[in-house]
């Protein structure tokens, strides 16, 4: 493993979250499209299936992935289009991680009790 620093890990996380969100989107398009078989059909079955705890944890991860990917995308835009962005890339990355965590807290507060209750 190359011992890269913040920039390398920002890049790796950006790629991983990008692929994860793309795969989720594919799944989402498929399950939503099942509604054409009627509200009681496979669409409903999928919704029930998604309430299993592994998918609830997946939900938390997808939300974190979307938030990270979006915020880091803004960081990349600032690096690409401003003269100062590169200089502050590490600071901005820590900002992205901090904001992702802060935004994730309400998600955790909502979803984790639901998982524990088996709701």
């Amino acid at each position: 493993m190359y011992r890269g620093r913040e920039g390398q890990w920002a890049f790796v996380l950006h790629r991983v979250t990008g692929v994860a969100v793309a795969l989720f989107l594919l799944l989402h398009v498929i399950d939503i499209s099942l509604v054409m078989f009627g509200p009681e059909g496979p669409f409903e079955a999928f919704l029930v299936f998604y309430h299993n705890w592994p998918f609830r944890i997946g939900l938390i991860m997808v939300i974190a992935a979307v938030v990270y990917h979006g915020l880091n995308g803004l960081r990349i835009i600032l690096m690409d289009f401003t003269t100062w962005g590169v200089r502050y890339q590490k600071h901005m990355w820590y900002g992205v991680l901090g904001l992702t965590t802060i935004i994730g807290i309400p998600v955790l507060l909502k979803v984790v009790p639901e998982i524990l209750r088996g709701a």
């Binding site: 390398q8 890049f11 590169v86 200089r87």
Partner: peptide
């Protein structure tokens, strides 16, 4: 992809990513 490994690795301390941008 702005991973900055180049900037960290440069033994001449050239701000490589800055130059690329």
């Amino acid at each position: 992809r702005t991973a900055y490994n180049c900037t960290e690795a440069c033994p001449r301390d050239i701000p490589v990513t800055q130059a690329i941008e």
